[in-house]
Nucleic acid binder design. Structure first.
Lengths: 248, 248
DNA sequence: CGCGCAGTTGAAAGTTTTCAAATGCAGTGG
DNA sequence: CCACTGCATTTGAAAACTTTCAACTGCGCG
């Protein structure tokens, strides 16, 4: 527990009640780290730095120098890449406890842009420090490989979704995915607010905005969900799961 | 250069002329490693193990215990995941010099199956050994993070392709991608043999087989490519590049 | 030689996109 | 406080693209 340690108890006591922090007692990376390894350890606070960014603001932009990973503490962040002809593709939606930037560790520049979908707070972790620490701590190194592997899988899931599922299936997948991630943070998996606009959803799912709107309307007509603006209630999760598993 | 080293010169001299080994002087991982880091170093031969697998044979199957990564020495390997309802999605086509299994380092089981598209030889590297070595060698650790990051990017490229491109665009992307990877190995990027069937292509690109066939026929009619069976000649690479960059 | 599977081609069907138009919502400035 | 403006969202109808279904050809192998 040497240089890494502490922080967890400090924060656990300073923010015991806020729902935003049920999952994030300290830096999310640390929690993630300690959970994954069943080790009560945490990154040294000296290498971390908290930051708040407003809705629509950038955490970083594509092609800018890559220096740090970011762990989301609250809010939601989207990452996206830009094609040669200016179109963008959202590559991920990151919620509290999740780590941004793992796809850029092989270059000197970020491979995507990261923008806040709502007011968010993040924890910045310089990658060089992390590498140094990982070199000294095999458990941390192992955890890092695991995190990156998970990121590959996340992306592959999206691939499968885009390749094999209908518009309804894609939408169902997204809703189920969001629900699960919220539940993992011990928040409600049935009643929540969509973190993104229909436009972002359409981009992420590879559909036209109109299609997203139509599918959501259909879901509502069938009483599978209830939706007002971005406020969402999943009324028939089993049906959604079934639709999510069903392919073209 | 301690425990890691040697091998490169040994193999470089023993197989100087075979085109299959122009890129792979020793274990591909090592070459990749030494290239990436501009270090003349290589994994200790004691932890490696070569293997040959015939066309259609499995390198490993999904859900089986994860123990090793594999570096392709010759041939071509596809990886694919199976959905709950039995459909499969090809997640990657691996050619010499590329590494398979990076998406499974967070679990005890492989997350996909790997099957040889043609007679192939691979180099098996137990992951636990690699982790141990990486812990002792910061440069190797760094290289590993880079490899995993590249794998994330590869998957994200596929996501973009599936999300934004038409059938023609997808096919063009695949051909250009294959061409580039062959060129990277100093093989011809204009005349080569498709490593996979039309069925594999269709699955990988998220299209129906018939669509793949139609697009290839169209490309031939427009004299963009020449194709007999799997023998391919790219006649108008600039046109292909343009089509690959063009979205829906 | 024939079986089985890969590949091709045509026509119809289906899904999603595109285009167009209207509504709603939020922030801004008068 | 209200009108105004810009964007998000919804809805309808037509257009476009891809899939599905069906049939046929070709190739490799026992």
């Amino acid at each position: 527990m040497s240089t890494i340690a502490k922080y967890m108890d400090v924060e656990r006591h300073s923010q015991p009640t806020s729902p935003l922090y049920t999952q994030c007692n300290a830096c999310n990376l640390c929690v993630s780290f300690s959970e994954g390894n069943r080790i009560n350890a945490c990154l040294d606070e000296s290498i971390k730095q908290q930051k708040t960014i407003g809705r629509g603001e950038y955490l970083f932009k594509e092609h800018r120098p890559f220096k740090s990973l970011f762990s989301v503490r609250s809010g939601a962040i989207k990452t996206y890449a830009e094609t040669s002809n200016g179109e963008i593709q959202i590559t991920g939606i990151y919620m509290p406890g999740e780590i941004i930037g793992l796809d850029s560790t092989n270059t000197d520049a970020y491979n995507c842009s990261a923008k806040a979908l709502e007011l968010s707070s993040v924890c910045e972790i310089p990658f060089s420090h992390l590498e140094n620490m990982a070199a000294k701590n095999p458990a941390l190194q192992h955890h890092f490989f695991a995190l990156m592997s998970e990121e590959i899988q996340r992306s592959q899931s999206l691939t499968l979704l885009l390749s094999k599922k209908s518009a309804e299936g894609r939408m169902a997948c997204l809703l189920i995915d969001l629900s699960k991630r919220l539940q993992h943070r011990r928040l409600s998996g049935t009643t929540f607010r969509l973190p993104m606009t229909r436009i972002d959803i359409s981009n992420y799912l590879g559909l036209a905005v109109e299609t997203v709107s139509r599918v959501l309307t259909l879901f509502q007509k069938n009483n599978i969900i209830s939706l007002k603006g971005r406020e969402l209630i999943l009324q028939e999760i089993p049906t959604l799961v079934e639709m999510a598993n069903h392919n073209h």
